[in-house]
Design a protein around this nucleic acid. Sequence first.
DNA 1: ACGGGATGCGGGAACGTTCCCGCAAAACAG
DNA 2: CTGTTTTGCGGGAACGTTCCCGCATCCCGT
Lengths: 336, 336
Amino acid sequence: MSNRPTIIDVAERAGVSKSTVSRVLQGAGERVSAETQALVWQAIRELGYERNAVASSLRTERTFMVMLVTPDITNPFWPEVARGLQDTVEPAHYSVVLANSDWDVEREKHFLQTLRRNRFDALVINPTAVSNADLLALHIPTVVLGVGNSFPDFDVVGSDSRRGALEAFNYLYVLGHRRIGCIWGQHRAGWAQSRLDGYLDFQRQHSLPHDERLLVEAPFDRAGGHWAMRQLLALPERPTAVFAANDILAIGALEAAREAGLNLPGDLSIIGMDDIYAAAMTTPPLTTMAKSKYETGRWAAQYVLERLAGQAPESGRRRALPCQLVVRGTTAPPAA
Amino acid sequence: MSNRPTIIDVAERAGVSKSTVSRVLQGAGERVSAETQALVWQAIRELGYERNAVASSLRTERTFMVMLVTPDITNPFWPEVARGLQDTVEPAHYSVVLANSDWDVEREKHFLQTLRRNRFDALVINPTAVSNADLLALHIPTVVLGVGNSFPDFDVVGSDSRRGALEAFNYLYVLGHRRIGCIWGQHRAGWAQSRLDGYLDFQRQHSLPHDERLLVEAPFDRAGGHWAMRQLLALPERPTAVFAANDILAIGALEAAREAGLNLPGDLSIIGMDDIYAAAMTTPPLTTMAKSKYETGRWAAQYVLERLAGQAPESGRRRALPCQLVVRGTTAPPAA
DNA sequence: ACGGGATGCGGGAACGTTCCCGCAAAACAG
DNA sequence: CTGTTTTGCGGGAACGTTCCCGCATCCCGT
C-alpha cells in the first residue's frame, strides 16, 4: 500500500548514511560537503522522496501546528482574524487547525484535549470559560484573543474597545448629539464591559447626566438589536443617536428604526462596531468603529512565533489595537 | 521539560505490560479482563496520562486530520461550508486544518505538499488549478467542492447551479419579465459555466431571442457587479430584471442601480445567488437563489468519512444540492 | 614531520505507540 | 481426565525520523 520511500532508501541510493540525508534535509546549519549534498538531492528527486512529518514530530516534539479556537467561524468577525493568523504563520511552516467552541465549556475543554494529545505547538484562543490557570497547565505558547485582565500570564491581543467606544460617542457628540442611546450585548465572559466603560468615560468627560433608560442590554444578535432599538424608540424622550456594541446589533437596530418610519441619518444616527462585511451593505451603509480583524490575527501569530522561537519576554504582553472610525451613511448632526 | 507520562509509566503503575495498556486504550474490540481494565484506568487517572497522538500516527499511519482548501475563508461563502465540514468530522475525532489558496496555483501545490508531508488522512478541496490526476496521485480520500465533470474519479459535492440559475430565470419569467440581463463572473476554472448553461436552458425553454448584450462578464467582486450593471443600464433597451451569478455581484449591481436613480424592485428586479450573510442586509433585501453551504460541508464530510471507513463505492459520486429560492425585496413584476 | 583542532560522515539509540507472535492458564468437549 | 480451543496478557520488533557520540581524514602551525 503505502510504499513511499524513506530516508533510508534515499541514503542507500545516494550511497551515504541516513544521518547524512537527515542532515541535508535539515538544511542550513548542518555541515555536509557540497558534493554529497548534490548526491542526496539527486536521490531525493529520483525517488520522489518527501519527509514524513509525523516521524519527525515524534522525535523533535514539534508538530508545526497551531490551533485556533474561536466561538464560531461563521460569525463574520472571525474569518478575517483566522486569515491574518494563517497568513502570518504560514511562512514559518506552521499550519492552523480550526475549532469552534460555540461558547460551550465542554467543547472548549475537548479541543484543549485534542490540542494536548496531538502535541500541537501553540494555541490562539478566544476563551469562553477557560481560566488563566487552565491555559498555564498547557505549557505551550498561547495567545489570548480579546481584552481584559483575566489572563495576566499570556499575550493578549484585541482591540481597544473601550477607547473605540469612547471615540464613537465623541464623534456623535461633536456632531451635536447630546442624548445618546447605547445598545450592548449580554456579557459573555464579561467582554462587553469595555464598551460600557467607554460609555461611562464619555459621560464623565462631558458631565452628561446618567440616564439608565438609555442603556439597553440585549442578546448578541440581530433580533436583539432590533428589540433594543424598539425599547429606545419607546422612550418618552427618545435619543437622537444610538451606539451599538457591534455591527450585528446595529443592523438589527437599523432595521427597527426604518420600520418605525424613521429617516436615517436625518431623524436618528446609528453607529456600530467591528466593521463586518455586511456593514457596508445596509441602507444607508452603516457608520461603524472598525476593528482591525486581520491585524488581530497577524499580531497573535507574531507573538506565537516569537514565543515558539524562544525569543519573548516572560510576562504576558497586551496589544490593544486602535479602532478606526469608518464614517458611512448612518450618522449626521441631529435634526434642528 | 516535557515529562509527560507514557504508556510505559502507566503499565508499570498498573503492574501490567504496555501491550495491555495499549489494548485498553483502543477500547472496544480488544479483549482484556474487567479487573485489569479497571487497574489500567486508575493508573491513567492517577498519572494524568494522555495518549501521544503523534506516536500513534506514526505507527498506524492515520493522523485523524482533514485538510480543507478553499480560495479564501474571508469570502462569506466559505465559513459555513467549513463549519458543516467541521461539525460532521468532529464526532469521528477528526480535526480540520484550513488552507487558503487565493486562487494561486503555487499556494495550492504547496498545501498539497504539506498535506502529504503531514500524512493527513483526507482532503476536501475547491480546486483552483489541480487536476484529476494530481488528486489521484495523493492516494487519499478526497472530496471536490464545486461542480463540473473535471473530476470523474472523486466524490464531488456542490450546488446545482445550473438548475438554480434556470429556476431563478424562470421565477423572473413568471413574474412577467422577458428582457433579462445576466451578470456572470469571469470563469475561474470555468465554474461560472453552470450558471451560463442555466441561462441558455432558460432561453431555449422559452424560445427567447438571444441577445449577447444582455450577457455581461465581470470580475467576481462588488466593483465588478457595479460595473456590469452600468453596462446593462446603458443599453438602448435596458433589461427589466437582472440575474447575478452570486450575491456579491448582485450587491454591486444593486448599488449601481440605486445610484442610477432606479427604484427597486419597481423599476428593476435583481436576483442574486448564494445567500450570503450580507444578502439580507441590503435595501431592499436581496432576493437570491440560496445555496446550501452548511450542507455542502456536511456532505463532503460524510463522503470523506465513508471513504475513510473503507465503505464507499469505487467510482466518484456527485451530489448536486438543490438551490432554494429566497424571495426578499428586490424582485417584482415589471412596470406595466 | 608531528600533534591537535576542524570537518565530514556513519552507527546506533532514542521518541511513544501499535501489532504480531507466542505462551500460559482457563474453559470446554469427548 | 486428556486433548483441544479460547482467553488474557507479555515480549519485542516495527513505524521514520533526529540526535548524540565517535571515528576517520584533512589542514595548519611549529
